[in-house]
Simulated assay, not measured.
Amino acid sequence: MAFVAPPGYQPIYSPRIPYLGPICGGLREGMSIYLQGSIPEDITRFFINLLCGESESSDIALHFNPRFDGWDKVVFNTCQDGSWGSEDKIRSMPFCKGQAFEMVIMVTSQGYQIKVNGNDFHTFQHRIPVERVCAMQIAGDVSIQTINVIGVRPPLPEAFSLMLYNLSGQKLYSPVPYSNMIPGGMIPKRTIVIRGMVPYGANSICINFVVSRTRDIALHINPRVREGIVVRNSEIGGSWGQEDRELSLNPFMEGQYFDVSSVFIHSVSLMSIRCGNQRFKVFVNGQHLFDFVHRLQSFTEVDMLEIQGDVQISYIHF
């Protein structure tokens, strides 16, 4: 059960800006593009284009252009046959100079729904059929750590124990307990995205990042639904460490989804686990949930993800 990406698509980590790359298989309704990045202090502007070809001269189905020019705004537009359309100007700025951000571009039947740091920002209505989109371009004053294309529905052989859909598009949840190797391990800057739901009557969930060779648990995330807490810990050499319990919020509530894309669900949140040199950083719905400082010196040996307990998992994006 791993995230199902478009045919030939792999997550992009720390791309060089300016960036121009394909979205293999193209876009369609129900897909999302998830980006992690940061804004420099001296920013003037940057843009993200969804292109209808793999060259800079291709038609642009979505032009997303934050401008820090004294009248901070975000400009949306399209470009067809070399001619720009009428601009949508949103005189509000969801980004902050010198700060990191998480952004999701969700493809709905109406348009591109933009969320920044977990907050709805703007929906730009389709002017060009989304099926024409096959590439992405990013340029300007921005640093990007991760680009993930999420929420696709390609045909799959039955042998794959992955996120599956029936022909009507209804999600078929994958079984728990879950255990799978992490391709390439938890190297610095690696981000894992998990989508799932806490069913009614749930008691406890367990998410472990494990060293398969030693069975050490570098990060143990244990939402205890009935107690209303999220316990974090590690188990090294067969001994549990000191629990971390304090949190400003608990997103793991009965009947709630935790997710990257709100296209399929009613209550949206984002769970992403990012590995850094000093700590794991965990975000839910674009909001920082907690940091967990590495207790295992050889944290780069973490190569297995395990999930147990009262949870339904839709996909996991490595």
Rank of each mutant, 00 (worst) to 15 (best):
L172S: 14
H266C: 09
P223H: 03
L270N: 13
I217E: 01
E246F: 07
Y173G: 01
L50C: 05
C52Q: 03
I90N: 02
M31K: 15
Q125T: 07
Q308L: 04
D303L: 05
M271G: 01
I39A: 01
I43F: 11
T44M: 12
A159W: 00
H63G: 07
I17A: 09
I192C: 06
G196N: 05
Q170N: 14
W84I: 09
S168R: 15
G241Q: 03
Q110L: 14
A139G: 11
Q113P: 04
P177E: 04
H220G: 08
Q312P: 02
R132P: 02
G309R: 00
A218C: 11
L289V: 14
V116W: 07
Q287V: 09
S58M: 12
N180Y: 09
M271L: 14
M103R: 11
L35F: 13
S109N: 15
G98V: 10
N285G: 15
E158I: 10
G169I: 03
S234C: 13
G53V: 04
L51A: 07
R226Y: 08
V176Q: 03
F258C: 01
F76Q: 04
V75T: 13
D120K: 15
V230W: 01
S234R: 05
L35E: 01
Q113H: 11
F76T: 06
G70L: 12
E54Q: 13
L296H: 01
R226N: 08
P155F: 06
S272T: 11
Q145I: 09
I217W: 00
I150N: 01
I128S: 03
F292V: 11
N117F: 04
Q308W: 04
T300H: 10
L296A: 00
S234V: 07
D81F: 04
R215I: 06
S32T: 14
V231E: 05
C275T: 12
G70S: 13
Q297C: 05
M197P: 00
L20S: 12
F209W: 11
G255D: 03
S57L: 04
S262C: 03
C79P: 07
P157E: 14
